[in-house]
């Protein structure tokens, strides 16, 4: 099977469209019959990554690739970068503004959620150089339901 790829551009602070890439990915995975528990994990990671890029980044890009053995989410931006990745991974740590916190973001759960729900999380970032977050999800033969794409 050829790899299935899709990519989206993410605009900084564009809350009107924020979340649409993740919803589109969710629909795509349903259509190709990925099992629902895995779709839900991918959806959590996609949403967190997308919101991070929209809130903190500039010129974000969001790509998904579905291979025979894995799903890869690759989200990057040209934002301020992460100064201390280990610190950013701590639950509860956030650099979100007061405005974002009032919207219910900035609880310091985004990166921990991505780590918990992906099989592998890689973050490349440098202060002032942007951030790239790559999440991988293993696809076992049982991860695909029948071709109709029906989920429970």
């Amino acid at each position: 099977m050829a790899a299935l790829k899709k990519s989206f551009q993410l605009k900084s602070r564009d809350f009107i469209h924020a979340g649409e890439a993740s919803i589109s990915v969710q629909n795509m995975l349903k259509q190709i019959g990925i099992e629902s528990a895995l779709i839900r994990r991918v959806a959590i990671c996609a949403y967190e990554g997308e919101m991070n890029a929209v809130m903190h980044g500039e010129n974000g890009s969001f790509r998904i690739e579905v291979n025979t053995d894995k799903i890869i989410l690759d989200i990057s931006d040209e934002g301020p970068g992460i100064e201390d990745i280990a610190k950013a991974m701590e639950k509860g740590f956030s650099t979100a503004s007061e405005e974002y916190r009032e919207m219910g973001f900035g609880a310091g759960m985004g990166l921990p959620n991505m780590e918990t729900h992906s099989d592998r999380l890689d973050i490349e970032s440098e202060k002032g150089q942007g951030t790239r977050v790559v999440m991988r999800f293993s696809l076992s033969p049982g991860s695909r339901e029948n071709k109709t794409g029906q989920s429970a």
């Binding site: 979340g19 993740s22 919803i23 969710q26 959806a43 949403y47 919207m103 219910g104």
Partner: peptide, 10 residues
């Protein structure tokens, strides 16, 4: 605000 809808969909 509108981002609650994306959470609900997902």
């Amino acid at each position: 605000h509108q981002n609650i809808v994306a959470v609900a969909v997902l």
